[in-house]
Amino acid sequence: MNTVNDTLIPVLGVITDVRIDTPDVKTFRVVTPDGKKAFDHKPGQCAMLSIPGVGEAMFSITSSPTNTEFMEFSIKKCGCVTDWLHQAEAGQQITIRGPYGRPFPVDTEFKGKDLLFIAGGIGLAPLRSVINYCRDNRADYGTIDIVYGSRSMDDLVDYKEIVDEWTKDTDVHVHLTIDREQQGWDGHVGFVPSYVKELGFDTNKTAIICGPPIMIKFTLDAMIELGFDKTQVYTTMELRMKCGVGKCGRCNIGAKYVCKDGPVFRCDELDELPDEY
C-alpha cells in the first residue's frame, strides 16, 4: 500500500534563499532536502506549497524549466499561507507537490512565433517562467516583447533581472510602465492597457497576458482593438484550489477545472466558458 504514490502526499522542500522583491512580494528558492529540484515542470505550471498546520496553497512556478537546479516562487503576501511564508527564513522546510495544470504551449503553438508578454504586478510571476524558457531556447522563437506595469517603481517584481538581463538580450524589448508619476522614474507612466495601445504591436504576434482580472479584461479589449484575434492571446488564471487535480470540485469555471484544464487558457477558449471569473 505504501508504495503507491498519491498526488495528495507532498514531498519535502527547503527554502534556501529568500529574495525581497517589493514591499509585499518575496521570491523563494526551493529545493529538496538533498539539494535537488523537487520535480520537473513546464512553463506556466503550478505547485502546491504548504506549511503543515497553516495550510496549503497553489503557486505558479516562477523559475524556468531550463533551470535544473532549483525552483523559484514569487509570492505576494495576501493570506494565511503567504503571511507565514513571508516570515520564513532560509533553511525552513515546507512541503511541495506538483506540477499541476496545463502549461503554455511553448513547444507547439508558440514555436517560431513573435511573442508579446503583458504582465501587471505579481502577474509577472507565471510569465517569468515562460520568458526565461524562451530566452534559453532563443532559436525557437521570434522577437520577444515584454510589457510590464505595476503600481509604482517599488512594486516591479524582478526589477533587477529585468534590467540586468532581459533588456540586454538582443531581440528582447522590455517596456515598463508604472501607474503614477514617481520621483526617480523616467520611464513610461500609465496603465498597461493604454500603454499596449500606445505601443501598437504588430498583430502577427502571439500574446500572453497575466495580471489582476480587471487588467486582463481591459488589456484584452485593447488587443482586440489593435486587431488581434482571441486565438492569439493566452492568459493564466487562479481560483481557490485544494486538490490540484480536478477532484475536489471548487476551481471550475463551467465544466473546466482551472487546476487541471488550466491555469493556461487561450482567450477564445474562455469565451466558451460561462462568465464566472
Binding site: 500500500m1 498519491d6 502526499i9 522546510q93 512541503t95
Partner: peptide
C-alpha cells in the same frame, strides 16, 4: 491523509495509509 511532525525548521511527513 497524512501526518506531519514539526521540529524547528524541519518537517517530517508520515504516510499513514494502510
Amino acid at each position: 491523509l497524512m501526518e506531519f511532525k514539526l521540529k524547528g525548521k524541519n518537517i517530517e511527513i508520515l504516510d499513514i495509509r494502510e
